[in-house]
């Protein structure tokens, strides 16, 4: 650290911290859907990354359509893309639950294998449809450029935008899970399926809707993802191992824990990255997480449940 002045060090921390925030947003957006599907339902969806990729590709198609057919829409396509991304992944998630996941609730490890297979198939479909090359969306003008509070600190606008979406989604999920009738049903179903059934909750419908919603959130995450990076067939699967670790580290059933652990992992990774090589930063971060999990397997913020 010797070669830097204190002012530069502050700037490094702010900018690396900000790039950490972008990573944090990606983790959190992906983890939100997983926190619902894995945290609430206990289903491992290894194809979650592919749902994110689907959302990203839908956004890309909308942006392409907007720029090529109706140029006036170019500035405003994004909300439409988000809606379509949500809808597309929601419907696919609904179908997947109906055809695949439903049969495997009693066998969580088998769900893991089956969804991994689903992910492989989806990846290959993307590869043959959109090509192996990465694609990027044409961004509206208002997302370009950056915000510079001092002359050495430089913060990109699209990063700020993604952060906004992440915050919005998190709040929405919290409201849905903890402040809505549907949330009560979901939590009742996960706590005690039989009793929930007896109380007149259609648990099958709750499951299907929950899974589809988790996938829909992944779709929105994909739409947000396109503004900070380009999309390829394997984009989503790059993050799947990390994201599962985020959810487990935070404590599976705790949404607050997910946010904290996504923040911690992303920040330590990106700040360490400046001083070490990128791969070592990741190794040290993940090893620390695994080591902590060995001493505290229930995660950082576990709800107290008697087993």
């Amino acid at each position: 650290m010797g070669g830097y002045s204190s002012q530069e060090l502050v700037a490094i921390f702010v900018m690396q911290g900000f790039s950490g925030l972008s990573l944090f947003c990606v983790f959190l957006l992906m983890a939100l859907g997983l926190a619902i599907i894995f945290g609430q339902m206990g289903v491992i969806n290894m194809a979650h990354g592919e749902f994110l990729t689907l959302g990203a590709y839908i956004t890309w198609m909308v942006s392409k359509l907007a720029t090529e057919t109706w140029p006036w829409m170019q500035q405003f396509y994004f909300p439409l893309a988000v809606a379509l991304a949500f809808l597309g992944t929601f419907i696919l998630g609904y179908l997947v639950e109906m055809l695949l996941i439903r049969r495997l609730y009693a066998r969580p490890l088998d769900t893991l294998l089956a969804t991994w297979g689903l992910g492989l198939i989806m990846q290959q479909i993307y590869r043959s449809t959109f090509g192996p090359r990465e694609v990027s969306v044409v961004m509206p003008d208002w997302l370009m450029g950056s915000w510079a509070p001092t002359d050495i600190i430089d913060i990109p606008l699209n990063g700020l935008f993604v952060m906004g979406i992440t915050a919005l989604m998190t709040v929405l999920v919290v409201i849905l899970l903890y402040r809505s009738r549907w949330g009560i049903k979901v939590r009742a179903t996960t706590q005690n399926r039989l009793m929930a059934n007896a109380a007149g909750i259609n648990t099958q419908r709750v499951d299907r809707f929950t899974f589809a919603l988790g996938c829909g959130i992944a779709g929105v995450a994909g739409a947000a993802f396109t503004t900070i990076a380009s999309t390829g067939p394997t984009t989503g699967s790059l993050y799947i191992v990390d994201t599962f670790l985020v959810v487990v580290f935070g404590g599976a059933a705790s949404l607050f824990g997910t946010v904290v652990s996504a923040f911690g992992i992303a920040q330590s990774q990106s700040i360490l990255e400046f001083f070490l090589s990128g791969s070592m930063a990741k190794v040290i971060t993940l090893l620390t997480v695994v080591a902590i999990l060995m001493f505290r397997p229930q995660g950082l913020f576990a709800s107290k449940v008697r087993r």
Binding site: L100, L104, R107, D110, T111, L113, A114, W116, G117, L118, G119, L120, I121, Q124, I125
Partner: peptide, 11 residues
């Protein structure tokens, strides 16, 4: 695709 189908089919 075959590999993916194998995962799902076997399970």
């Amino acid at each position: 695709v075959f590999m993916g189908a194998l995962f799902i089919g076997v399970v």
